[in-house]
């Protein structure tokens, strides 16, 4: 369990780090990149600033994987996930606020236009979001283990 989680968050950390670097490179390069369902933004805000945060998230993951069950190490992994949630959460929030108004034509968007906003490609942060949620599973499992241990001791 411990070993497996270290490997999982290690890989996630490397991928996150790579996404962060890609974000920054694309921003410096100045034109957006899109392959398949992944789109890397190139504006200074989402790509540059956001990329910097994704990059730190990757570093947090990598700093936390050694001896992950120790609480201070785990907190770093947790923080990596929190950073991803901040960026991804606000990317999604931005999508929501864009999807509702109708632009020049009408007050509200058409249903098609509304749904279209949510279609891929997605930003790296949104892409990482589901994988970052695994930290919850790990914490729950760990707590359950501790409870079990305490019961056994009693």
């Amino acid at each position: 369990m411990k070993r497996l989680s270290s490997i999982y968050f290690g890989i996630l950390g490397v991928v996150t780090l790579a996404f962060g670097i890609a974000d920054l490179l694309v921003t410096i390069g100045g034109s957006g990149l899109s392959f398949g369902i992944l789109e890397i933004p190139c504006d200074a805000f989402r790509g540059g600033w956001g990329g910097l945060i994704i990059l730190s998230a990757g570093l947090f993951y990598l700093a936390g994987i050694k001896n992950i069950s120790e609480i201070h190490q785990l907190s770093k992994v947790m923080m990596g996930s929190i950073l991803i949630w901040i960026v991804a959460g606000l990317d999604i929030f931005a999508m929501i606020t864009e999807s509702i108004p109708g632009g020049d034509r009408s007050w509200f968007n058409t249903l098609e236009g509304f749904l279209e906003t949510y279609a891929p490609p997605y930003t790296p942060a949104i892409f990482l979001l589901p994988f970052s949620l695994v930290v919850f599973y790990y914490i729950l499992k760990k707590e359950r283990n501790i409870l079990k241990k305490e019961e056994d001791e009693e």
């Binding site: 989402r46 730190s56 923080m79 950073l83 901040i86 960026v87 606000l90």
Partner: peptide, 28 residues
């Protein structure tokens, strides 16, 4: 875990990236 996360937010090395992320969230 809450205390450990609390510590991360005040130590400069880890706290600064976090503050940058909070600021990002704020502006976004």
């Amino acid at each position: 875990l809450k205390d450990a996360i609390g510590e991360l937010t005040v130590k400069p090395l880890t706290g600064i990236p976090i503050a940058i992320a909070v600021l990002y969230g704020f502006w976004s």
